[in-house]
Amino acid sequence: METFIRFIDIWKAFGPKRIYDGLNLDIVRGETITIIGGSGTGKSVLLKLLIGLLTPNRGKIFFDGREVTGSRESDLRAVRQRIAMLFQSAALFDSLSVGDNVAYPILERDPKVARGELKVRVAEKLALVDLAGSEQLKPAELSGGMRKRVGLARALAMEPDVILYDEPTTGLDPINTMRVNQLIVALNEKLHVTSIVVTHDMESAYYVSDRIAMLAHRQIVAVGTVREIRESTNPDVQRFIRGGA
């Protein structure tokens, strides 16, 4: 088992507000790990640190043997093109149509891609999230759950090695929740994508995860397989999964 992503002794604060005091976490290539934890404990911040959107005050982050922290913005490009992120807010580009949103990362990587091929790839990603044929819509015309799914299609369009899912199923109906859960598993099994999932939905967490990590008290307080976490005696974990199940 090869460590692919490594958070070492991460300290992060926003002004006086401390988020992590020495957080450690190792992620293995090809696994799906879910981060659970209360609202405001810094789950989204953890994902943003990994791709350098935020920087820790102290500590190091490694991705595939290369240090992310301390890299210059221009050097992060290579890392970012291998890691796709689904934002909690979806973060769609309002000024672009749904189709152009999904095409964005494809064009960013290969500006000379043939129009026809681009169209096919965009349609294919939209179909994966059950939004086939919605290329012409504007983000403002979409519901919250639809935006989330377009955000997911855009992340998939990067054809990345790693996908960061920030609450992928929040706001989705049960059928689409299941569809997204199955998609996460399928990407992992077929394309060996490494996934980091942030979710409050324990059903999803149990369904998609190889391992689960619990964020509390500004640390990762527990990490283990789904079974280990379910049977954990850690009081934080028990309180969270009871309340959240």
Binding site: K48, I51, G52, L53, E73, S74, L76, R77, A78, R80, Q81, I83, A84, M85, F87, S89, A91, L92, F93, D94, Y104, P105, E108, R109, M158
Partner: peptide
């Protein structure tokens, strides 16, 4: 500013664009 507060600038950076 709207792009910034709705994380669209972060999204651009997250895809390796400047």
């Amino acid at each position: 500013g709207s792009m910034r507060v709705t994380e669209q600038l972060d999204a651009i950076r997250s895809m390796g664009a400047d």
